[in-house]
Deep mutational scan, measured.
Amino acid sequence: TEVDLHLGDITIKLKDVSEEIVKRAKELFKNGWSAEFVKKWIEEAVK
């Protein structure tokens, strides 16, 4: 499945990412993480 994760003005296309990771990524962004950091976190999380 593909998900578009909207973080501010940046959209990250996610492939084969669990709902849990998407939820967590949104929380991290809301908590002040930059979109770049969230993207890196996701990449690490799906390895």
Rank of each mutant, 00 (worst) to 15 (best):
D9S: 10
L7S: 02
K40L: 14
K15W: 09
F29N: 01
E2M: 13
G8R: 04
H6S: 09
K39Y: 10
K23F: 08
H6Y: 05
W41C: 02
W33K: 12
K23C: 10
K30L: 14
D9R: 09
A35Q: 06
V17A: 06
K15C: 07
A35G: 07
E27K: 05
K26M: 15
L7N: 02
A35S: 08
K23A: 15
V17C: 05
K26W: 11
T1E: 13
V3M: 14
S18D: 13
E27V: 06
T1M: 14
K47G: 12
W41R: 00
A35F: 07
I10H: 08
L28M: 13
V3A: 12
K15N: 11
I42T: 01
E2Y: 12
I21L: 09
G32P: 00
G8Q: 04
K40S: 11
I12G: 03
E36S: 07
D4A: 13
V22T: 05
A25H: 00
W33F: 14
F29Q: 01
W33D: 04
F29K: 01
G32I: 01
V17K: 01
K13A: 09
K40Q: 15
V38F: 01
K26Y: 13
I12D: 03
E2W: 12
A35M: 04
I12T: 03
K23N: 12
H6T: 14
K40N: 15
D16C: 09
E43L: 05
L14A: 03
I12S: 03
A25C: 03
E43Y: 07
L14M: 07
K39T: 13
A45T: 14
I12F: 01
E2H: 11
D9H: 15
K23V: 12
F29T: 02
K23M: 14
L5D: 02
K15F: 13
I12N: 03
D16Q: 06
S34I: 07
S18Y: 08
G8Y: 01
F29E: 01
L28D: 00
V17P: 04
E43M: 08
D16K: 05
V38M: 02
G8K: 04
V22P: 01
G32M: 01
S34T: 14
V46E: 04
A35T: 08
K30T: 13
L14E: 01
A45C: 13
K15A: 09
G32S: 01
F29W: 11
E36N: 05
V46Y: 06
E2S: 13
